[in-house]
Design a protein around this nucleic acid. Structure first.
Length: 262
DNA sequence: ATGCCTACTCATAGTAGA
């Protein structure tokens, strides 16, 4: 099963890029972030034409997450994280597909730091970690995927010293990342490529993509009961070079089929 | 040190992104 995550930075503005990539890459399950569209503006017709079903949680102007599948029915289990009934952001959607539970997420950016947006990021991270503990405890095969807006280590930033005070790389945020991962999650890309420079985002400024001045902020976390099925994990850099493209690249993993009789 | 670029909208300027 090929699973991908892609922060599209506007699902309608980037629709030609998204459709071209879906046709080319043919992932079985996809998590999208930053739809920047309300529910009734999600381009479900164009996505269905390519053979995908979808569930989505949109929002006008900002945020918005979706899960797509072309390999089986999508059984939505949750939209929004528990723990704050006043949270209006559309940042989490969860569904069972093909025997695996997928949590598609768009963690808050958190800049500027310090400030209320940074506080919200840390609170959201804590709510994610609390929910993730329940997923671990369930023993189910779970994949948490999406834009986590955190570079876990210095290896994941083109120029770490410039990012120390930024909400994506601040010590509190990296500590929150490792509190989550240390529950037993496997960071799929880093596990298969322990020493490689891997970036998933390049900003639009200063020709960042051509200079490879990037960040690794889009991640896959695998629960213990599914991590043994990991076969490949890669960044699909090509779509980042296309016209009118997102500032993120799609990232994908390949999981071996569930062994029969288990 | 700042802004660069890009998308979105109760749009034509302000907000957010990272």
């Amino acid at each position: 099963m090929k699973i991908a995550t892609y922060n599209v930075n506007g699902v309608n503005g980037r629709l030609p890029v998204l459709l071209r990539w879906l046709e080319q890459a043919r992932p079985d399950v996809v998590a999208l972030q930053e739809l920047k569209a309300p529910d009734d503006k999600f381009p479900i017709g164009a996505i269905r034409k390519l053979g995908y079903d979808a569930v989505w949680h949109g929002q006008s102007r900002w945020n918005g997450v979706a899960l797509l599948s072309r390999v089986g029915a999508i059984h939505e289990t949750r939209r929004g994280l528990p723990g704050d009934p006043d949270d209006t952001h559309s940042r989490y959607i969860e569904a069972a597909i093909n025997g695996v539970l997928f949590g598609g997420l768009y963690l808050p950016n958190g800049n500027p730091r310090p400030g209320p947006k940074f506080d919200y990021k840390l609170r959201w991270f804590e709510r994610l970690t609390a929910h993730a503990q329940g997923l671990i405890d369930s023993g189910l095969p779970v994949v948490l995927l999406g834009d986590f807006n955190v570079m876990p280590t210095e290896k994941d930033v083109y120029k770490p010293e410039r990012w120390l005070d930024d909400a994506l790389f601040a010590p509190e945020v990296r500590a929150a990342w490792f509190r989550l991962v240390d529950q037993g999650w496997t960071d799929a890309l880093r596990t298969l490529h322990p020493d490689e420079t891997i970036y998933t985002f390049w900003d639009y400024f200063r020709n960042a993509f051509a200079r490879n001045a990037g960040l690794r902020i889009d991640h896959f976390l695998l629960s213990p009961s599914i991590s043994g099925r990991l076969r490949a994990a890669e960044v699909d850099r090509e779509p980042r070079s296309w016209e009118k493209t997102s500032d993120h690249a799609p990232v994908w993993i390949e999981l071996a089929d569930d062994p029969p009789g288990t």
